[in-house]
Structure formats: C-alpha cells, structure tokens
C-alpha cells in the first residue's frame, strides 16, 4: 500500500551532503510507489532553479560532455518523471518568501510556490515527516 512521506529541506545545492541524502530518500520512496511531499525552505529553493548549467572541469581537463556534470534541477526533474512512471505523486513546494529574497523564481516544471501552512498540511496528511536541517 502506498504511503506518504514529507520532507523539509533547507540546504542550498552544491554545498551539503544532506542534499544528496534527501534526493536518495525521495528516489527510494518514489521507486516503491510512495508519495512524497517536499517543503523547500531557505537555500533549498535553489535546488530547482532552472538556470543551473553544467560545466567542464579545468582541473581534470574534461570537456562539458566528458564531465557530464549533474545539476540538482535535472535530478529533481528526473524524480518528477519517476513519480509519474510509478503512479506516485511528488509535490514540491518552494517557500515563496525564500524565493523572493534569493531571486530564485525561475524554476523547472513541477514545483509550486507556497509557505509554512502548506508544510503543516503536508505533515498532517503524511505517514511520516522528516525535517533535514541546515547547520
């Protein structure tokens, strides 16, 4: 039977190991047909920014193609596809005020703007809620 997991994320991409763990957990839940809610707070609203671009690596001497640099927007886009393929739901709320102050309003298809009341609603309707804080 499918269940619902809610996560609150806070870390900006490319800085903390917690982003990786969160994406792994979301992948695992969706792969098993569970629904996932994400409340992206503070720097986590940057995870889905559309203007992220991969780059070559001058230290390793790799080209753009060889490096195949991942972006969190691509990974999260892929998680939305996974949800669809598995018949599960991925709801992703970007905290609107966090978006405004960071100028992070241009994001990939999927996430929607929201705020703390959405997080309360998520938590009330979920089987589990995990807050992954920043430090």
């Amino acid at each position: 039977m499918s269940k619902t997991l809610t996560l609150a994320l806070m870390d900006a991409p490319y800085e903390k190991a917690a982003s990786t763990t969160a994406l792994r957990l979301i992948h695992e839940a969706l792969s098993r047909g569970h629904n996932v809610n994400v409340f992206a707070y503070e720097g986590a609203v940057n995870l889905t920014m559309a203007d992220q671009k991969p780059h070559a690596n001058p230290v390793k001497g790799t080209s753009l193609e060889e490096e195949d640099h991942p972006t969190t927007k691509e990974w999260i886009g892929s998680l939305f596809e996974l949800a669809e393929n598995k018949g599960a739901t991925l709801k992703w709320i970007n905290c609107g005020l966090c978006v405004d102050e960071r100028g992070a309003g241009n994001w990939i298809p999927g996430p929607v703007r929201g705020g703390p009341p959405h997080f309360v609603a998520f938590a009330k309707s979920s089987d589990a809620t995990l807050v992954i804080p920043t430090k």
Partner: peptide, 24 residues
C-alpha cells in the same frame, strides 16, 4: 544567529510562529 541580520528574524523562530498561525 544564522542569517538573522539579513533575514531580520531567526528563520526557525519565524517558521514556528507561522506554523502556529497555520494551526499546529
């Protein structure tokens, strides 16, 4: 004191107050 100056709040105290207003 994490980002309190530019946020004008502690973000978690602010969030807590907001969650309370939202019914938690």
């Amino acid at each position: 004191y994490r980002a309190t100056v530019e946020e004008q709040d502690d973000t978690i105290l602010w969030l807590s107050h907001n969650l309370k207003k939202a019914g938690a």
